[in-house]
Design a protein around this nucleic acid. Structure first.
Lengths: 341, 341
DNA sequence: CTGAAAGCGCTTACAG
DNA sequence: CTGAAAGCGCTTACAG
């Protein structure tokens, strides 16, 4: 016997060990794993049995090194604590079959530098593809990774030159619906609570909202940009909201997490929703229906976004997926302003 | 020249290329990266400059293969769409510094077979460690991986023989507090809506709740076990809840997602909370405060759990972390039953 | 259908 | 402080 047991941990079995155990060559073991049709059924059965019994698992570092490319895909989400992103991940997993194609998740917390670190880490781990909701700042990095043969798919159509496979998420249209809803209800002084305009999602939601407001005379829009789109930041934004020179009667939050934070902050100060302030969110997160009051929000299907992205990743040629359009879900958090004579 | 540019993608630079560009050996490049004190400052500076300029990134497959072990850690969560788990992940990231130690997330959806697939995938990717809230079914698999030198830390103390580093999460105590709250308010017929008892978290919450109820005469407890602890399953559980022979006046849900689903289901049927049914959750998720009515729930700090787990993973010798005890947060979803004469 | 051999990119003693 | 050489575990032509 050659192998003596290591102190504090057996050395994992290699394909060489399996080969020796079965009495075939290492190449045959590898073939049984990767091109089973090349191996006699009987030999294959024997190899599989021994593999099972010994608990062998292929060393995918070696596999990736040899074959040039790993099989994992990396996904950068803006915020793991936001259930919207959780639902997007589930949509991706629905097509990648969990455990078959490993999905590596990185949470950027909407920070461009963190995002870049995650991308570099993905690259050095040899991922086959990257799924990302892009920050403008890292487009060059993504270009470089794509040149290296990593498939990059954008969870948005924010790609001026059409360099990347991407999908149209019509944030501008969604935000415009929200704006029109508020305008119809008589609001003329409105605020936007948003994340960073570096993010394509935030920028589109802002511009869509503003464009819709611009068509109605006498409408004032102010925007507050927070570092990230979390409940905490939403809560913190209320202090700024209340000292805005336009004295807003309504606030459009770029996602439901911000909206939740805003509602908490308003409640803490005894400001009634929708009596004193109307609130609109975006995403239709799973909790929005049961908030008090129910949150009026723009719904888009997170799972559909995830599925579409995974499909773009998996399929070689893919027409951009058609996704359900965002739609307004009216609940109790918005009210019609009494007309002042 | 040996290298011709590949069709459709430059070949990534290797440390050999960097060495040639700088005019040193490959070993020196490697040393500059991994043991910089061994390299002259001037040489190192030159190497670093060229690396930057050329966008080199180390091939971590090769690194992992050579050095025997990867540096990523894998984490299995029960449900990515549950913001509680998102918060746990954030707690882990707070100590692993995102991008430095890659964190691979797998979502088991509380299915033991999926969990095993994820674990195998982690193993073959050569993770250095695994963070997991254990299913009884996969304890043997975890044992095998630990024998292979992978550090396994359990997000619970469900480890009869103390084989794994773990942390005490006192689910039984938390559930008992919820039970006592209900008992004090006069409830004697109560239901538990839970996940699978294969999960240590669910099993402890069930037994803690039952034990507390057992101390009060005439108390009937019924339990409904759903496939997973999601809003959808909570919603679905209501049908079963309403035909229970004990006609419960209160329901304890093993997490806030289930509770949210139960509240949705009750609302759909016009059953008032807490008028017709009291509801208690577990986790104090970020949305629970603003539900209508506010959800009475057992709070535990997700971020603290994540941090403690990451610390156990990172530190060589680690006494089990002391975590904040779960505590009851009373809100509007529970009421005192009028005493029937 | 099976095996011997080369090589993926890196790190690590070891010699200088 | 620097370099030549071996080898991690795997896959892949190629020969038989």
């Amino acid at each position: 016997m050659i192998d003596a047991p290591e102190p504090g941990g057996l050395k994992p079995l290699t394909s060489k060990d399996i080969a020796r155990l079965v009495g075939v060559s290492q190449a045959t073991v590898s073939n049984a794993l990767n091109r089973p049709h090349l191996v006699a059924a009987k030999t294959r059965a024997k190899i599989e049995r021994i593999m099972m019994a010994s608990g062998y698992s292929v060393n995918s570092s070696a596999r990736a090194l040899k074959s040039g490319i790993g099989h994992a895909i990396g996904m950068v989400v803006l915020d793991v604590a936001n259930p919207f992103w959780g639902a997007v991940i589930k949509g991706v997993e629905a097509v990648t079959a969990p455990g078959l194609i490993p999905l590596i998740i990185g949470s950027s917390n909407e920070d461009a530098a963190t995002e870049r670190q995650i991308l570099e880490s993905f690259a050095s781990q040899g991922v086959r593809g990257i799924l990302i909701a892009p920050t403008h700042a890292n487009l060059p990095t993504l270009r470089r990774l794509q040149d290296r043969g990593i498939k990059v798919v954008l969870l948005d159509r924010d790609d001026p030159q059409g360099e990347f496979p991407s999908m149209s998420l019509d944030h501008a249209a969604g935000a415009a619906i929200a704006a029109r809803h508020l305008l119809e209800r008589g609001h003329r002084n409105v605020a936007i609570v948003n994340g960073s305009l570096q993010l394509s999602w935030c920028a589109s939601r802002s511009s869509g909202f503003r464009a819709a407001c611009a068509s109605v005379a006498q409408t004032q829009v102010r925007e507050i940009n927070m570092q990230s789109m979390t409940v905490e930041e939403g809560l913190a934004s209320v202090a700024q909201l209340l000292v805005l020179d336009c004295a807003p009667t309504a606030v459009f939050c770029a996602n439901d997490m911000l909206a939740l934070g805003v509602m908490k902050g308003l409640a803490q100060r005894g400001i009634g929703v929708p009596g004193d302030m109307s609130v609109v969110g975006y995403d239709n997160a799973m909790f929005s229906e049961l908030l008090s009051p129910g949150l009026t929000t723009v719904g888009q299907s997170a799972a559909a976004i995830g599925r579409a992205a995974a499909l773009l990743m998996t399929r070689d040629e893919g027409a951009p997926e058609t996704l359900p359009q965002p739609e307004l879900i009216v609940r109790g958090s918005t009210r019609t302003l009494p007309t002042t004579p």
